[in-house]
Amino acid sequence: MTLLDPDFIRRLEQLRLQVRRKLAGAGAGARRSTRRGASVEFADHRAYSPGDDLRRVDWNAYARLGELILRLYVAEEDITVYLLVDTSRSLDVGEPKKIEVAKRMAAALGYLALAGSERVSIVPFSDRVRAPFPPARGRKRVAPMLKYLDALTPDGETNLDKTVETFLARRPRKGLVVVLSDLLDPGGYARPLDRLIAERHEVAVFHILDPSELEPEQGDFVLVDSERGTRVDVSVDARVLAAYRKRLEAFLAGARAWAKKRGAHYSLVQGHDLEAALLEYLRAG
């Protein structure tokens, strides 16, 4: 089934309605920015410093306290949602293939963003950044976006570091960077994601793993690395399985801990379970 399949589009619409119901009052396009600015919604006070706009001085406060205090407001603006979609060969496994899960997840997020009048850009990557879907706004861009996503095929090895470097080199506007990846990068994921945060992007991570990776079957196998081609002879018995689970849990816990520490969103996505991950993300705001 392609992303342009009417069933899938209908599901996206249902998802949008569902999101609306769940997030009553949080209208599309009214996304809260991390930047404070000139809007009607009060956010905070701070002391006046030379050069500040005198129009923002809270004179009532000055009358009561005798100090110049500036009123700060939440800056409401349309932000750009960058969907960094991992298209490395490591996503060409699983049932369904993880690349399909990533594409559907990206489609859902993109659809919701476009429906909310936000700008959406899709940046597929593996060991390099592939030709992106340029920032676009409006429902009319839904179909081109889905068509773009549908055309993505897995290729190359995962290299988050290089991807982020290339992405930032294009000096994108500050926005929400959603990373859709299995994070199985031998070079690690923490450093490149830290760089995104350092560049004042908001980061959300959708960690896409197949159920077979979370619960491998037992038996004698030659495991072939989909990216590097490395072959590992292993007899998966209870003992080996326990060691693998231990490593996997450490891997997942590490990702969660990183996200918590950096204030980023983290969701583990397994197979078809897109809605749950999306709702979890949207509920977290």
Partner: peptide, 13 residues
Amino acid sequence: RDEKKVASTMLWE
């Protein structure tokens, strides 16, 4: 052994 393609052998190794 049966050959089995996995995303990455990193965790297995």
